[in-house]
Nucleic acid binder design. Structure first.
Lengths: 248, 248
DNA sequence: ATAATTTGTGCGGTTTTCTGCAAACTCTTT
DNA sequence: AAAGAGTTTGCAGAAAACCGCACAAATTAT
């Protein structure tokens, strides 16, 4: 059995099954684990597969969303960076959808050990790319417009958890109505997320400040922290600070 | 024994076996290893074979370029096309993961009115792009390697539905063990999907036929339809047809 | 936190390859 | 025939590649 033959076999198995275990291969090919490991390593260096603990995965298998251009990306990245400091090991974090959240997830330190709960599909996918965080998807009927699960089932399951932090992508926020949104079904879920969490963080680009939609998620009294791309001393944020919200 | 004769013999052996070992050749041709090596080197320079440590391989061992794209895409598209005819308006369809399924979803007619149930994140996302189908995601803890939800919660919720069709991306299938897979948690979910469905369809590229993994999803008796890229009359499929499975 | 796998790495034995060289062979020329 | 030029072949010794083993480090699971 030649080395290249072995490697061709490994590639084939990966393509067929998306995954191989070192232990299986060394039986099938009748060589030592060391040899298999060296082969996998070599193939990984050539970019033909992804080496993981105990075996290897196909490279094309993990599929991610192509990010077209994100509106106001730099502002969102500033917000995401600020939000990072709130996230600590061991936390249970409820997280909503939106591109700001996606940026946040990309910035999570690789060794972070936290659990994220979401009902948003792209967010779940983004979280799955992180090496160590645990991801819980509360699912049910999916709403196409928001790419998230909605409905009584989701609400009731958020009711069963007690999160340390709620990261809320915010559509509109003002000092009168608090956080507001457009669709009833989304409101219901966001409400459930807020109620399930000890601390509520609203992430919003400054354009969304002092705007309101028809439906209320929660009043400002429930919001603990507000994060925008602005300097905390910006006068736009003063009304929120005065209401007792920590502004970052 | 002339040099040309030797080299012709080597080429012939390569054509027959796709590989030769230097050690074998120098016995068969009764010359020293050096001579063989020089022959191989010469033939390699002429592009007639691929020299590797210990012997040579046929040029067709070029497994270089096809990485990072979907493996065997055309076969999967054929399979997806065949599967389309099974999907009718009003159906409730349980669908598993995999690139074949993604191709299938892309081919769904825009006016289709069906409900899909899945626990696979990329599949859910793909389904969300469709204008009219309803998508239900059965969620819970997400498994990173498979990008899908697993666990008792998912299993129990599949137990509560009665699907018309189960589209099962198949990792391995053979006539003895039936459909098999690698990870326990995935098995559990797939089992639940099979049990929840009136009709079970296995989609598999032909390379997966007659291969087996360690864990059994279900026996062939539970499989109603098998779809591969092969012609239904292909003899590879005969054993399955004989077991009463409709082969498309 | 502790135990069990899995990895990484150095070592030694084996096989394969490389290099130079001389003997043997082919073919032409005398 | 015989000599000579060029090629091919086998050989020896050194270098490199390959593979399995053992032990320590890292990672995962319990």
């Amino acid at each position: 059995m030649l080395k290249k033959e072995r490697q061709a076999y490994i590639i084939q198995q990966i393509n067929i099954h998306n995954k191989v275990l070192s232990a299986d291969l060394c039986i099938q090919l009748d060589v030592s684990e060391d040899t298999i490991r060296r082969d996998l390593q070599e193939l990984a260096e050539e970019g033909k597969l992804m080496k993981v603990h105990g075996g290897a995965l196909a490279k094309s298998f993990h599929f991610t969303i192509e990010t077209n251009q994100v509106y106001n990306l730099s502002a969102k990245q500033v917000i995401a960076q600020k939000a990072l400091q709130l996230i600590k090991d061991g936390m249970l974090i409820a997280i909503s959808g939106g591109t700001t959240m996606r940026e946040l997830i990309k910035l999570l330190p690789p060794e972070l050990n936290a659990t994220f709960v979401t009902s948003n599909v792209p967010i779940a996918l983004e979280l799955l790319n992180h090496p160590s965080v645990e991801v819980i998807f509360l699912g049910n009927k999916l709403l196409k417009s928001a790419q998230m699960a909605v409905g009584a089932e989701v609400v009731s399951r958020f009711g069963q958890i007690k999160a340390d932090l709620c990261l809320l992508g915010t559509n509109s926020i003002d000092t009168v109505d608090g956080i507001t949104d457009l669709e009833l079904e989304i409101i219901e879920v966001k409400k459930a997320m807020v109620d399930a969490s000890k601390k509520v963080v609203s992430l919003a680009i400054s354009e969304k400040l002092n705007t309101a939609q028809r439906l209320v998620v929660c009043g400002l009294d429930k919001v603990d922290i507000l994060i925008t791309e602005l300097d905390p001393t910006d006068e736009l944020l003063a009304p929120y600070a005065k209401k007792g919200i920590a502004v970052l």
